[in-house]
């Protein structure tokens, strides 16, 4: 038996909106640690890892580990029916072939439940090794989304370079070249407006903007995005979910032949 109750139900909606463009079907894994997911996009270039820790839920019951295969766009259709202030409960029986989503309005005067069919998904679970990153950039998530959106109107790929100067985003297209440099800026009024750059070594990597733009769909989850870079390793674009966990996107860099 599985029963997870989240008073801030809008978080589930934001998580789904953040990952459903990248991944069609995925197994949600439930254990005593929390509610998690790891899935690759259909071309196996990017990977998303989600963790919602059990402590973050108002009620969390998971009698034994279960993995539930779900179609994310169908799930999003059902979650669209939940109000932004609704309390969301996810329920499933061990060995069952459905999952139930229950939405309660804050005043308890409207209660809906939606039963969705589960699916069997063959998925490969990948081991993500702990890595020392050459550079870690923390910046406002809205600024990062803006940069990715702007650059994708000019080119298809972005070179992200971190040096003493700051973090530079470069693209090239038929019409020309664009460079955007963000310098470390910690003297702002609010911590979420700061750009913080930790650099152990200069790093420069090329990525497909299409994927970066897809990752920025998770922007409403966090004011801050953390971009971890190491030469010849996938970049990690992380949106922390306050008190609960994270959504991390991994993207393989393009490699010169």
């Amino acid at each position: 038996m599985l029963e997870l109750r989240l008073v801030q139900g809008s978080l589930f909606k934001k998580v789904l909106d953040g990952i459903k463009d990248l991944v069609n079907d995925a197994n949600f894994d439930c254990s005593s640690t929390g509610f998690s997911l790891q899935a690759m996009d259909s071309s196996h270039v990017a990977l998303v890892a989600l963790l919602l820790r059990s402590e973050g839920f108002e009620h969390y019951r998971c009698d034994r580990n279960i993995s539930m295969g779900m179609n994310l766009s169908n799930m999003a259709k059902m979650f669209k029916c939940a109000g932004n202030d609704d309390i969301i409960t996810i329920k499933a029986d061990d060995g069952g072939d459905t999952v139930t989503f229950m939405f309660e309005s804050p005043t308890q005067d409207k209660i809906s439940d939606f039963e969705m069919k589960l699916m069997s998904i063959d998925s490969e679970h990948l081991g993500i090794p702990e890595a020392e990153y050459h550079a870690i950039v923390k910046m406002p998530s809205s600024e990062f989304a803006r940069i990715c959106r702007d650059l994708s109107t000019i080119g298809d790929t972005v070179v992200i370079s971190v040096s003493k100067e700051g973090v530079k985003f470069t693209t090239k297209g038929d019409i020309g070249i664009a460079n955007i440099v963000c310098r470390q800026n910690t003297s702002v009024d609010k911590p979420e407006e700061a750009t913080v750059i930790e650099m152990n070594e200069p790093v420069s990597l090329t990525f497909a903007l299409r994927y970066m733009n897809s990752f920025t769909k998770a922007t409403p989850l966090s004011n801050i995005v953390t971009i971890s870079l190491s030469n010849e390793l996938p970049v990690v674009v992380e949106y922390k979910i306050a008190e609960m966990g994270y959504v991390r996107f991994y993207l393989a860099p393009k490699i010169e032949e």
Binding site: V45, L47, E124, Y250
Partner: peptide, 14 residues
């Protein structure tokens, strides 16, 4: 041009 490798080139199956 640059080649796009898959993520499985970096992370292996467990």
């Amino acid at each position: 041009g640059a080649k796009q490798p898959t993520i499985t080139r970096f992370f292996s199956k467990v």
